[in-house]
Design a binder for these strands. Structure first.
Length: 359
DNA sequence: AAAGCGGGGCA
DNA sequence: TGCCCAGCTTT
């Protein structure tokens, strides 16, 4: 990492010229007032928060009034903001402040982090803005700014990436005007360095922003690795019944289920009877639908639609080497792929119980 | 419909 | 400790 020495001054200059400085929580910046605003802003945009914030402050002007209120009263003021667990935490934390801290916020970040609903970043925001403590924040806004500035190549959700980004955040946080810097970084993330359509031209950091230099600001922060959305494949599987026996197929030695006994399979959109008769060389007397189900492999889902085909007693099949007739109970003693085993078990139970489709 | 959001809470 | 979730928004 090569911190640019003038990072913070540039951010602060931008803030002095363009930052928002007259939001309701930006005057009389007590820890209490900053705290309430930070919690509300975690989940909601500035314009929505303003009326809620003002109403909340009117009813609960200080930590004592908040602590003394009932949870229902507090939640009534939260109504419409969502995330009510955070409203409840707010109330609990107010009571903890009154009971354990004589109504004052702890002096240290660790102390503030003890309060329910406040973690490292929110604690730093409260203390830097209200008391000008030189503590770094790393909320979504700051993560975005830093990820772009350094073209951070990995997903911030990874532990080591997040640790590295905390180190960056600390390296850039100035000793002076830390509160303004905190506000400025949030403001930049909210108004310039937005998730989509960032206003790079107006950004005071663009000359040294690696993502901007790459011409790809929105490529950062790297998004969460996709859970490799497993493709879905479809197949038909056939339980070909001849008297008391069913037809098992020996799979090729390599590939999926290599060398195992399985069931004859058709493409999903093959005409079941027609293709079965053609390929196996048997005549189908009767078709019984079995329950379709999904089998999931490590890399794809296989949706299996099983059918039972009843064929004539003396049917012979083509390619006899690949096939063998087994009683179901005998077939179940073979080493079978799991979904094949389930089909056979189902077919065994289902004899005579399924509605029959005579064709 | 999918990802992002800070902190909580679980294994 | 490390990972995933709740509950809502934005894209």
């Amino acid at each position: 990492m090569t911190p640019k020495n003038n990072f913070a001054p540039r951010v602060l200059d931008w803030f002095d010229q363009h930052g928002r400085k007259h939001l309701p929580w930006q005057h009389n910046k007590t820890p209490y007032r900053v705290w309430i605003s930070e919690i509300m802003l975690q989940q909601t945009q500035v314009t929505t928060v303003i009326p809620y914030y003002e109403r909340f402050m009117r009813s609960f002007p200080d930590v004592y009034s908040l602590a003394a209120a009932s949870q229902d009263e507090v939640l009534a003021h939260w109504s419409g903001l969502g995330y009510y667990a955070r409203g409840r935490n707010l109330h609990k934390a107010a009571q903890a402040l009154v009971n354990d801290w004589e109504g004052e916020f702890p002096a240290t970040q660790e102390g503030v982090c003890e309060l329910p609903g406040i973690g490292r970043s929110t604690a730093a925001a409260i203390l830097s803005i209200s008391r000008n403590e030189p503590l770094a924040i790393l909320d979504g806004n700051v993560k975005r700014v830093l990820a772009r500035f350094h073209a951070v190549p990995t997903w911030p959700g990874e532990r080591k990436t997040e640790t590295a980004m905390w180190a960056l955040a600390e390296a850039y946080t100035p000793q002076d005007r830390c509160g303004d810097y905190t506000q400025a970084m949030m403001d930049m993330g909210a108004t310039l360095c937005t998730r989509s359509n960032p206003s790079c031209e107006r950004c005071p950091l663009k000359e040294d922003c690696e993502a901007f230099a790459m011409g790809a600001p929105t490529a950062f922060p790297k998004s969460k690795p996709k859970k490799a959305a497993k493709p879905v494949r479809n197949t038909q599987m056939l339980v070909v019944q001849r008297g008391e026996t069913i037809l098992m197929e020996k799979r090729p030695a390599s590939g999926i289920w290599g060398g195992l006994w399985s069931l004859p399979e058709l493409d999903f959109d093959d005409d079941t009877i027609q293709v079965a008769e053609l390929r196996l060389g048997v005549q189908v007397d009767n078709v019984i639908s079995l329950s379709p189900f999904r089998h999931t492999f490590s890399h794809y889902h296989l949706d299996i639609v099983p059918y039972k085909l009843v064929v004539q007693e003396k049917a012979q099949v083509n390619e006899a080497a690949k096939y063998q007739w087994f009683e179901i109970s005998e077939a179940l003693k073979l080493g079978l792929p799991t979904p094949i085993r389930s089909i056979l078990e189902t077919a065994q139970e289902a004899v005579g119980t399924q509605p029959q489709l005579n064709l």
